[in-house]
Amino acid sequence: MTTIEKKPINFSNILLGAGLNMAEVTSLGQPLEVIKTTMAANRSLSIFQAGKLVWSRGGLFGFYQGLIPWAWIEASTKGAVLLFVSAEAEYQFKKLGLNNFVSGMGGGISGGLAQAYLTMGFCTCMKTVEITRAKQVATAGVPKQTSFQVFQDIYKKEGIRGINKGVNAVAIRQMTNWGSRFGLSRLAEEAIRKITKKGENDKLNAIEKIASSVIGGGLSAWNQPIEVIRVEMQSKTKDPNRPAKLGVGSAFKYIYQNNGIKGLYRGVTPRIGLGVWQTVFMVAFGDIFKKLLNADGAGH
């Protein structure tokens, strides 16, 4: 009987994951996130109109709204949470006798759920608040509300639920994101093996690995309706017709009634770009830096 071993979690790998996530979000990650969220919250806008609206909210800095501190907090913590939880869950699924594909998928789904409820819920909520709240008019003697003051206001009025608004939609998104990325990337790997006539045990080269991850990352945007629902639940965009308390179901109904199927897929183009950028960044740069740090022991 084969002994099932748990992959060791390398501390330098956790630091590398946090560092790469920080670099990814500070480069193209946050601008793509801002455009995607703006389109999801204002569903009549095209990608170019959304870009113009973001620019009007502060020029180049408008594309980085919500970066500090919320996107940085999220980026520096979500990688470590995913690594710990997915490794433990994958080990437990294997112990139950499930194969590598199902165990890996189960590990990814479990890690995604943990990310949502432990770190990403309040971070995505506050990022969306920053991106969608009305721009404060400069008034003499009236200081502008900082991001932390907005956080405190929401917490005073609505408590933990207020700052975690939409967390269930975030959990569904992360669960389907990681399930899709694992599954679709694995299918893409199999297709690449067939095209290149490589056997099951032959290693894919860096370009082939990146290509399969890009395909998986791009195609995982099929769950964009969940992302639009999440944005709507967290949005500070004013609409008198919007129900006061939105759940996942009521948000879906509201978006569908107002904008139809197209409304549920607003922002899918920057979302695909974001998925591809994140994947290339984490896979390509991750492999390069892992070799430099000799941190290859722990999985992605």
Rank of each mutant, 00 (worst) to 15 (best):
Leu187Tyr: 14
Arg186Ile: 00
Glu189Ala: 07
Lys144Thr: 08
Lys194Leu: 04
Thr176Val: 13
Glu158Pro: 00
Glu200Tyr: 09
Asn201Ile: 01
Glu158Val: 01
Gly166Arg: 04
Gln136Lys: 09
Ile131His: 13
Gly183Trp: 13
Thr196Gly: 02
Leu204Thr: 00
Ser185Ile: 01
Thr132His: 03
Gln152Gly: 06
Ile192Cys: 11
Ile131Lys: 07
Glu189Tyr: 00
Ile131Phe: 08
Gln174Ser: 11
Ile131Gln: 08
Leu184Asn: 02
Ala114Ile: 04
Trp178Gly: 02
Ser180Ile: 01
Ile192Trp: 03
Asn201Met: 01
Asn201Lys: 15
Ser180Met: 02
Ile195Glu: 08
Gly112Tyr: 10
Ile154Glu: 04
Phe122Gln: 07
Gly166Val: 05
Ile172Arg: 02
Glu200Gly: 02
Val142Gln: 08
Ile163Gln: 13
Phe182Asn: 00
Ile131Glu: 10
Ile160Ala: 14
Phe148Arg: 05
Ala169Trp: 15
Arg193Lys: 09
Ser180Gln: 03
Lys135Thr: 12
Arg161Thr: 08
Ala169Pro: 09
Gln149Tyr: 07
Ala171Trp: 14
Phe151His: 08
Cys125Pro: 00
Gly141Trp: 13
Phe148Thr: 02
Ile154Arg: 01
Asn168Val: 06
Pro143Tyr: 10
Glu208Ser: 01
Lys144Asp: 08
Ile172Ser: 06
Val167Ile: 15
Met126Val: 06
Ser147Ala: 15
Ser180Glu: 04
Met120Ile: 06
Gly183Phe: 14
Gly121Met: 04
Phe122Ile: 04
Val137Ile: 13
Gln174Gly: 06
Arg193Ser: 10
Ile172Gln: 04
Asn164Gln: 12
Pro143Asn: 05
Ala169Asn: 12
Ala116Phe: 09
Gly179His: 05
Met120Lys: 12
Tyr155Val: 04
Ile160Ser: 11
Ser147Asn: 10
Lys157Val: 07
Thr128Tyr: 08
Leu118Gly: 01
Thr128Ile: 07
Gly183Ala: 15
Thr146Asn: 14
Pro143Cys: 03
Lys197Met: 11
Glu200Val: 05
Ala191Phe: 05
Lys157Gly: 02
